[in-house]
Design a protein around this nucleic acid. Structure first.
Lengths: 234, 234
DNA sequence: GCTGATTATTATCCAATTATAACAATTAGT
DNA sequence: ACTAATTGTTATAATTGGATAATAATCAGC
């Protein structure tokens, strides 16, 4: 990812604030903090964030009001509420204020991290998104949602739908063998199987695209009797 | 809300399936159901949904595989996992497969309803109300608000409503493939699908407007089996 | 164990098939 | 009258499977 994603964390309990901040930073986010609603709004006006995490119970201005104010100006940024109350009215209220997610205290830190990842990913735009949906192999970069392959010299080769899908599958499962059966089930439909020879053909073109030495594949390995394995150390 | 939002619910326990379905319908959603992964994929291919709720443990094909297959196609539809397992690996795996949310069983029905509302709402505003008033392609400028196209020589060509909408969509998503389905969903309504051939014709006129060489498009690329991609380096 | 024969699987090329898009002409709808 | 949508024909690109060569695995016989 190009640059660190930024999170604004608003929480009045110092202890909890520090714990969450530390964990988010370990995950690679840049975290700004505020301990009350007033300060939160001040920081929000000065910087741009990819996600705002708001405790509901805050001194001076509560989390809901903060969210409401933010939504007046900027309806895009995802907002996650942390709430101790678990009554239905409260959660519905949060929703109305434009929450994208909420966690009930006490919560599991790991769950927080996971949900943060989902929200940040969702908010990404343009170049970041393109970055997220790409994969580098050597000098070349595959862009999965523009269906193209950028070569080392900057030239671009178009990829077909099936090529892209199969590449995606093998890369998702990199460093493990994917059986021919699995490939057919996933890339082709569960009912219409072509001959297994077809797969070879796709691998062949992949090797033409990516392998410096066709006869000695670095990336696309055949596993006899099973299927193929995409190997990459990155 | 113009028309009912559609949800695909995939769950193998009949009792739970019915309970969730009933509650979602009470909330005003149109709910389609499937009891195993294979059926789910079949239905997914036939209809369009605003949200997919997937139990992870399913007969035949599990929820993760279903999600993976859906995500291999270009689909951006939000996916929520229902999972009994609460181990960290499982949740991270769900994330990687492209989850937008997940609930751990046993869950509170009210919480499910709330989270569904968040995801559906998010999907709707996903059409980005980004202010895009004009856009330059080569010598020409499109004015989205006045539905017209200013040519290099200063003359003006009027654009129809549909032309403008489709142009806007493709330009907003520039450099990525937009599937025919997405086009139909966005430019046409959810229920009124014209034949997909209609789209070709619009592209045809776009190429007449913008392409120096019709046979070798610079801007409007067809991606076979997927849809169209508007390419621009600016 | 080793060697060569046998068999199974994959690599590769290419022609045939199929799927999809380009395009034009026509119809429908307002 | 003018968009929008359908339909049909042609053009084109992607996918497929057959043929053959290459390679790897298995096995029989020594």
């Amino acid at each position: 990812m190009a640059s660190k994603q930024r999170i604004l964390l608003v929480e009045d309990e110092d202890h909890l604030l520090e714990a969450i901040k530390l964990n988010l930073e370990l995950e690679g986010y840049k975290v700004s903090t505020a301990t009350d609603g007033k300060k939160a709004l001040k920081i929000f006006k000065e910087e741009r964030f990819n996600l705002i995490i708001l405790d509901v119970m805050l001194p001076e201005i509560d989390g809901f009001q903060v969210a409401e104010t933010i939504r007046l100006e900027n309806s895009e940024v995802p907002i996650m509420f942390l709430t101790a109350k678990n009554t239905s009215e409260d959660r519905v209220l949060g929703l109305k204020k434009g929450a994208d997610d909420y966690l009930v205290k006490p919560f599991n830190l790991e769950e927080l991290i996971l949900r943060v990842a989902i929200l940040v990913k969702r908010g990404l735009k343009g170049d970041d998104l393109k970055e997220l949906n790409s994969y580098k192999i050597g000098e070349k970069t595959i862009y999965f949602n523009s269906f193209e392959l950028k070569n080392g010299d900057g030239s671009v080769t178009p990829l077909t739908k099936k090529e892209t899908m199969l590449l995606k599958l093998l890369i998702e499962r990199r460093n493990e063998a994917v059986s021919r059966e699995q490939i057919l089930e996933t890339v082709w439909n569960y009912d219409v199987y072509p001959s297994t020879r077809t797969i070879d053909n796709f691998i062949l073109t992949f090797r033409k695209y990516f392998e410096p030495d066709q006869k000695n594949p670095t990336y696309f390995h055949s596993i006899r009797g099973v299927g193929y394995k995409f190997t990459d150390i990155s």
